[in-house]
């Protein structure tokens, strides 16, 4: 008795005569079955064919492996199930669901395929998409997957008054300091000999929110210039910040503007 040759004849003729399709074969000879049944050289051939083909489908798999190889290596009970399904369909009977082959003939477990990704729309009609806010380790509430993004935004907006301050915006005078490599200190002004600071005008141009919208991450101390009484307050000044005008004769001109170094533009030391 040569049951494998019989199966080869039966399946080959079934495919030739359109009694069955390669999809019918792979419904039973699943990738899991192939993974434990097919020898590695045949796997190499299959992978090569799949990589070289623009489309991978059941026909490519069956044609590449070949019915004789399938019948040779796949357990006969599985080939039989495939064969029986084709026959049942040919006889007009209802085809039963493919049998789960949880174990191979050698007792090795066959893993079930991973569950389908649930892309079903939610009750709101929107598909569920993972939303990552903050660190990835942050715990998520059970209904986090269905919470609309708008809720999160409104929640963040409610947090702002709790802190008692508006979103940090840079004032126009924020960039007071040059970078250390701009050699300002080499122009006769030591680190301890700062120029006297003129009082800032009370009416400064208001910051344009749109201009600094991308710098919200730069947190600065609160420097609100919009309050009316800040100019009347006495500001504590350290003596080291003051300039001894009598000894600083060389610098005749005192700059009273807002760090206007335009008069030094052409000078070289």
């Amino acid at each position: 008795m040569n049951i494998k040759a019989f199966f080869v004849d039966a399946l080959t003729s079934a495919l030739d005569l359109n009694i069955g399709t390669p999809e019918d074969v792979l419904r039973h000879v699943t990738p899991d079955v192939l993974s434990v049944s097919l020898p590695r050289p045949l796997w190499a051939r299959l992978l090569t064919a799949c990589l070289g083909s623009p489309r991978v489908d059941a026909r490519l798999v069956v044609d590449t492996i070949g019915i004789p190889n399938l019948c040779e290596h796949v357990p006969t009970s599985i080939i039989w199930a495939c064969f029986a399904d084709m026959a049942a369909r040919a006889l007009g009977k209802e085809v039963a669901a493919p049998t789960r082959h949880d174990k191979t003939a050698s007792g090795r477990a066959i893993l079930a395929p991973p569950p389908d990704i649930n892309n079903a729309p939610t009750a709101t009609g929107a598909p569920v998409a993972p939303v990552s806010v903050g660190t990835s380790a942050a715990p998520q509430s059970p209904d986090a997957g269905t919470q609309p993004l708008q809720d999160l935004i409104s929640e963040l907006e409610q947090d702002e008054p709790r802190t008692g301050r508006p979103p940090p915006l840079r004032s126009p005078t924020a960039q007071r300091f040059r970078q250390s490599n701009t050699s300002v200190g080499a122009r006769g002004l030591g680190a301890s000999a700062r120029r006297p600071q003129a009082p800032a005008p009370t009416s400064l141009p208001r910051p344009t929110p749109g201009r600094h919208s991308n710098t919200e991450s730069e947190v600065e101390p609160q420097t609100s210039v919009e309050t009316a009484d800040w100019g009347q307050k006495e500001i504590a000044v350290d003596d080291s910040q003051l300039v001894d005008w009598q000894t600083d004769v060389g610098s005749a001109s005192a700059i009273t503007g807002d760090d206007d170094f335009s008069d030094l533009g052409g000078r070289k030391r």
Binding site: M1, N2, I3, A5, F6, D9, A10, S13, A14, L17, I19, A90
Partner: peptide, 17 residues
């Protein structure tokens, strides 16, 4: 279908199934 069953039966006899 006829052809297929004919081939199956023929193969079964040939392979002594």
């Amino acid at each position: 279908r006829k052809e297929w069953f004919a081939k199956v039966v023929e193969s079964g006899l040939k392979n002594q199934i």
